[in-house]
């Protein structure tokens, strides 16, 4: 019976030592081991580690994962005195557990410090740039990455030195105009659009007129040159016919005159014509004086 109890005792001690001397470190944790309250080492690799039993060495577990917090929505003034409403987010993780615990204690404290820090750095940085550094239609001219990188750089150094925090990045999650400016912005947008609409309509008319007049020009030019060609062809034909006529008629101009004149009589004397004929005309020679038989 006593022997059994002794066994129980031994087992309990072994179990206790196992549970307190072996520490499981998860992937998402940083473990700080302290000896009588003073830190002895930081474990940043997941797996099983050993330490002295509990009253001697204790374990503090911290989250090593990347976290995101948002800064408050703030109104900032650019160098050319334009208001911008900006909210940033900060990606951070615990870098130095000891410093972290000593300076900010927990995540809440850390977040508040980071928000304050980034807010003031953002304000300072934005004041150095004009609005066109933020808003530009030429993507080569945008300075936004440069601005946030400089803010990140400054915050990173300070957060690392003072809070044991690694600032991975400070970026914007909101960029806008202040609410009280919206009406003016909308009005400007509308005016711009109305101007564009007018421009499009005018351009349309202009383009159509241009096409029409170009068409007119081409049609007229084509008809004119066609007329020229046609006349030349006609002329050639007529010249040829003149030559042919002349060649034929030259053989006996008198006979030509006779036949042609007679032919033309048939054409221009019609039933509206009144011929006043002299009875002494040769035509009536035999009418008045019959031939002597």
């Amino acid at each position: 019976m006593r022997k059994t109890l002794a066994w129980f005792g031994v087992l309990t001690v072994i179990g206790y030592l196992f549970s307190t001397c072996l520490v499981q470190v998860n992937e998402d944790e940083l473990v700080l081991i302290t000896q009588f309250g003073s830190p002895v080492r930081v474990v940043d690799k997941a797996g099983l580690i050993g330490k002295l039993p509990d009253p001697v060495q204790t374990v503090v577990r911290l989250d090593r994962r990347l976290q995101a917090i948002d800064s408050d929505l703030g109104e900032y003034l650019t160098r050319d005195k334009k208001n911008l409403v900006i909210s940033a987010f900060i990606l951070w993780r615990i870098d130095d557990p000891l410093k972290f615990l000593q300076s900010v204690k927990d995540n809440q404290g850390a977040e508040q410090r980071l928000i304050d820090l980034s807010g003031s750095e953002l304000g300072a940085a934005i004041g150095n740039y004009t609005l066109s550094s933020f808003l530009t239609t030429n993507s080569d001219e945008t300075r936004i990455p440069e601005i946030v990188n400089s803010v990140t750089g400054k915050c990173r150094t300070q957060a690392k030195e003072e809070f044991g925090i690694q600032v991975v990045g400070i970026r914007l999650r909101r960029l806008g105009f202040p609410q009280q400016n919206l009406r003016a912005v909308h009005k400007r947008m509308r005016a711009e659009r109305e101007r564009m609409a007018k421009k499009y309509r005018a351009e349309g008319k202009e383009a159509a007129a241009k096409i029409r007049s170009q068409t007119d020009k081409e049609v007229r030019e084509l008809l004119a040159s066609t007329y020229r060609e046609a006349q030349i062809k006609r002329g050639h034909g007529e010249a040829e016919s003149v030559r042919i006529y002349a060649k034929a008629f030259q053989k006996d101009p008198d006979f030509y005159k006779l036949t042609r004149t007679l032919e033309s009589y048939g054409k221009f004397l019609d039933d509206k014509t009144t011929l006043i004929l002299s009875s002494q005309s040769p035509l009536f020679k035999y009418l008045e004086t019959p031939p002597d038989e």
Partner: peptide, 26 residues
């Protein structure tokens, strides 16, 4: 599972950042 406290939250913010940057240059 292990590198961020909330992948969705981080992803959402990264997307917002990308969009802001992109639109501000168009």
């Amino acid at each position: 599972l292990t590198s961020t406290t909330d992948p969705d939250a981080v992803l959402k913010r990264l997307t917002q950042w990308s969009s802001i940057k992109h639109f501000a240059a168009m």
